[in-house]
Amino acid sequence: MPLDTSTYGLALLRVDGRRWNELRRIHGQIRTQAAADGSSYLEMGHTKVMCVVTGPSEPGPRRGGAAGGASGGAGSGGQSKDAEVVVNIVIAGFSSVDRKRRGRGDKRTLEMQFTLSNTLAATLHTHLFPHSQINISLHVLSQDGSLLAALINAATLACVDAGIPMTDYVTACTAGSTSTYAANDEGADPLLDLNHQEEQELPGLTVATLGESDKVVALVCESRVQISRLEGMLAVGVDGCKQVREILDQVIKAQGRKMILEGTVDKGTGLNDMDLD
């Protein structure tokens, strides 16, 4: 069923009742898996992703011959001077409507693994952990658009939880445009955070930025769109990322506050506690 975008003007509502500049509900949790070094669970609307981080640890033996192809790895092997970031994505068969089973060799999944591993390798301080490996496994439980963005956000949360030093949060979100490519509507408006239906019908892109800056770590656009619309979409996407960063930051801070109150960690000494003797 084609998506009716006639109501998608600036003042009006989208198919799920959001405005053009509204994110879906984002719910994040960290420390969800007891046995992992770091873990997270993230919902962006109905897209639900779990992430588990193991490491940095001694690189284990490569499992089977297919491991080289099945896992996106940045950095060169276990014996390099930087830690290797190995990403593994499992998309559950029940996660989407059509119950399609994706094999491990699926090129789209491989590409996402590669993207994630390179995105994280750019921000994690991998040079601090020579000869080691950071394993990130992601499980997609439910898909409703913006999958890559949700994966990046979940992986960031889990890496923060695992206590791996990083330059800043990498946060991602999607942006789109209100009319299809064919309509060639010059007055098309940008849209924030596409759901599955919008992703199918409208041109869109996924953008991941570093912290609060405008620096783009990853930019993936898979649909045909006029070059003139790119600027608007990118601007909306980058701003959305900042919003997402704020939300993720609150998730981490809440955990930190809880730990301070419980007395698990010290309250620390800051610059203002200048009681030097």
Binding site: D37, G55, G163, P165, M166, Q255, G256, V265, G270
Partner: peptide
């Protein structure tokens, strides 16, 4: 700048961040 989620600690002139959790 902090690279971890954690608590700042100051030892004389040295500023470090001890993580909430790490290996």
């Amino acid at each position: 700048t902090s690279s971890l989620a954690g608590i700042t600690t100051r030892t004389n002139k040295l500023i470090s961040v001890s993580p909430l959790r790490a290996r």
